[in-house]
Structures are given as structure tokens and as C-alpha cells.
Simulated assay, not measured.
Amino acid sequence: MNYQSKYFYSRCLLAILAIVGTTLEIVKYGIGMLMYYTVQSNLLVALFSTYMVSALYRKKDLQSRSFLRIKAAVTMSIMITCVIYHLMLAPLATDFWRVENLLCHYIVPLYFLLDTLFLDKQRQYKWFDPIWWTTLPVIYLAFALINGLFIKWPIPEAKDSPFAYFFLNVPKYGWNFVLNYSVTIFIAYLLAGFALLLLKSIRVPNRSRKPRTV
């Protein structure tokens, strides 16, 4: 069994967990759950993991530099779901112990992060990659503010609907509050991206290589 096919079943499980978590959120609470970054990022992981399973089945290369740089962007996008929820939203949650909640906010993000850290080759990213990895969260921020201020599509289970999250509610808290939160999250996200770049830049010795004999 080669390196690519060795982790086929692990990524099958990852895809299943992401699909189940996303599906439960939408089936239980409605299609409007797609307005949440949490559900969008988990859907992205579900699609990306399904692609990885399909690629492994077809024996395609999942260790190319271009693929791993894109995968890192997905990793960062799902990990912000875990971190923001744990630090800012979980303390306010009244229904924490739901299967879909644990899947979407903890199990799937951490599973995907571990997959990236331990199964992907080292030294594949470029120095500026953490900058463009911020693209998806920034796009979501713009989308969430436009919806909350102008379109006003209702968001299921959101106390601050049509804003998905309390720290985006401009009419209630003001622009200074929203901008302070947004800039802080952006900087933390960017620093986390460079931390991932640093971790994946460390040269790991090849343990399969036999020691030289004198």
C-alpha cells in the first residue's frame, strides 16, 4: 500500500463526519443554516474531503504543492470555526451537547487540522500564503454585513438575526464594536496562518531511511 492509498479510510471517515454534521444542521433547522459561516465551512470540508476520497480511489496525487496550498486554506477556514466558537460562542450556548454542534465545531475542524499536520508533506507553502488564506473569512464578513444591513434574510436560531453572530450586529453595538472584533479576528487568523506555515516548514527526518553503517 503506497502513501496515497494508506490514508483512504481515514479520509473516508473525515468526509462522512463532515457530511453528517452539515446535513444534520440543515435538516433540523432549515436551509437558512447555510447563512452561518460554521455550516459553510463544514460544507466546504465535506466537499473537499469527498474530493480527496475520490482522488485517492483514482490514485491521483494529493501531495502536489498546488493541492497542499489549497488544502491549507481549507484548514484555516474550518479552524476559525472551531476557535471562534470555543472562545466566543460556546460560553453563550444553551444547547451545547448536540451531535451536529460537536461535529461542526470541534470534531471535523480538529480532524481536518490533524490530517493537514500529520499526513501532508512538509515545506510546500509559500511565504505569502497565509495572506490569501484570509480570503474566505473576509468574503463571508462582507456577505454577512450586506445581508444584515440590506438584504435581511432571516437566520435560523440566531438571536441577532439577520446577523449570524452577535459581534456583527452593527445596529445594536455600533461600527466601532464590530470593527474592533473583526480586526482582532483578522489579525489572529493571519498570525495563525503564519504559525501553520512555520510548523509545516520544519524539516522532518525520514525515519524510514536506514542508518549508515561504518
Results as ranks from 00 to 15, higher is better:
Asn2Ala: 07
Tyr3Gly: 14
Ser5Pro: 02
Lys6Ile: 15
Lys6Val: 15
Tyr7Asn: 14
Phe8Asp: 14
Phe8Ser: 12
Ser10Phe: 02
Arg11Phe: 01
Arg11Ala: 04
Leu13Ala: 15
Leu13Val: 14
Ala15Met: 11
Thr22Tyr: 01
Glu25Pro: 00
Glu25Tyr: 01
Ile26Asp: 07
Ile26Arg: 05
Lys28Pro: 02
Gly30Met: 04
Gly30Thr: 11
Ile31Leu: 12
Thr38Leu: 07
Gln40Asn: 10
Gln40Val: 15
Gln40Gly: 04
Ser41Leu: 06
Asn42Gly: 10
Leu43Ile: 15
Leu43Val: 14
Leu43Asp: 05
Val45Asp: 10
Ala46Cys: 09
Phe48Lys: 06
Phe48Trp: 07
Tyr51Ser: 12
Tyr51Phe: 08
Ala55Tyr: 00
Ala55Thr: 13
Asp61Cys: 09
Leu62Pro: 04
Leu68Ser: 09
Arg69Cys: 08
Ala73Ser: 14
Ser77Thr: 15
Ile78Phe: 01
Ile78Cys: 09
Ile80Leu: 10
Tyr85Glu: 01
Tyr85Leu: 02
Leu92Met: 08
Asp95Trp: 00
Asp95Val: 12
Arg98Gln: 13
Asn101His: 03
Leu103Gln: 03
Cys104Asn: 15
His105Asp: 04
Tyr106Gly: 09
Ile107Val: 13
Val108Ser: 03
Val108His: 02
Tyr111Gly: 05
Asp115Lys: 03
Thr116Ser: 08
Leu117Gly: 07
Phe118Trp: 04
Asp120Gly: 04
Asp120Glu: 14
Gln122Met: 06
Gln124Ala: 05
Tyr125Phe: 05
Trp133Ser: 08
Thr134Asn: 06
Thr135Ser: 10
Pro137Thr: 11
Pro137Arg: 04
Pro137Phe: 00
Ile139Tyr: 00
Phe143Cys: 12
Phe150Trp: 13
Phe150His: 12
Trp153Gly: 10
Pro154Thr: 12
Pro154Gly: 12
Pro156Phe: 00
Pro156Gly: 11
Glu157His: 03
Asp160Asn: 15
Pro162Lys: 09
Phe167Asn: 12
Phe167Gly: 09
Leu168Glu: 07
Asn169Arg: 07
Val170Tyr: 00
Pro171Met: 11
Pro171Val: 14
Pro171His: 05
Trp175Pro: 07
Trp175Asp: 10
Phe177Pro: 04
Phe177His: 11
Leu179Gln: 09
Asn180Tyr: 02
Val183Asp: 08
Ile187Phe: 00
Ile187Asp: 09
Tyr189Asp: 10
Leu191Cys: 12
Leu191Tyr: 01
Ala195Asp: 08
Leu197Ala: 09
Leu198Pro: 03
Lys200Pro: 01
Ser201Cys: 07
Pro205Trp: 02
Ser208Gly: 11
Arg212Ile: 14
Thr213Cys: 05
Val214Thr: 14
